[in-house]
């Protein structure tokens, strides 16, 4: 008999977005408060795992048709390119740049290239954790 987990699936549909948005918040808050790419990435993975638990592997793969190894590669590429731009202006590797901008919607905002590096970390964490879970959970 197939069990009916309608309550689990319905709650998941709501809770998933709350966890996901919280993970994005944690990711952006990293520069001034606790948080950052690593925790943010793990929280996002947590949200995806909740989806995997409530539905099954095939459904989630259909909803998120990423090859997560490629996500790892994109994350690494982003990190190395962010760290490498000083090579072209003859500054030491990993020199970051930052400035204050007046953005239309956000107002006075401090933008920092360290965030791009963190985005790389975030993608690597999500990609690596999801690859592990899908590999262990899948048949192949």
């Amino acid at each position: 008999m197939k069990t009916n987990d309608v309550i689990l699936q319905t709650t998941t549909k709501v809770v998933f977005f709350i966890i996901f948005i919280f993970s994005i918040h944690i990711f952006f808050a990293g520069h001034y408060t606790p948080g950052g790419g690593f925790v943010g990435g793990l929280l996002t993975t947590g949200a995806l795992i909740l989806l995997l638990l409530a539905f099954d592997l095939k459904t989630v793969q259909k909803a998120l048709p990423f090859d997560f190894m490629k996500v790892v590669a994109v994350g690494l590429l982003l990190a190395i390119l962010t760290a490498s731009w000083p090579l072209f202006v003859d500054l030491p590797f990993f020199t970051h740049a930052f400035d204050d901008f007046n953005l239309p919607l956000f107002g006075e905002t401090s933008l920092h290239t360290a965030m791009l590096f963190d985005l790389g970390v975030y993608l690597v964490v999500v990609g690596a954790a999801m690859t592990m879970i899908q590999t262990i959970g899948g048949d192949t």
């Binding site: 190894m69 490629k70 790892v72 590669a73 690494l76 590429l77 190395i80 490498s84 590797f93």
Partner: peptide, 12 residues
């Protein structure tokens, strides 16, 4: 850096 960069590209 060069081996690292090429290792990443090879993942694709």
């Amino acid at each position: 850096l060069i081996p690292f960069f090429f290792a990443i590209v090879l993942l694709f």
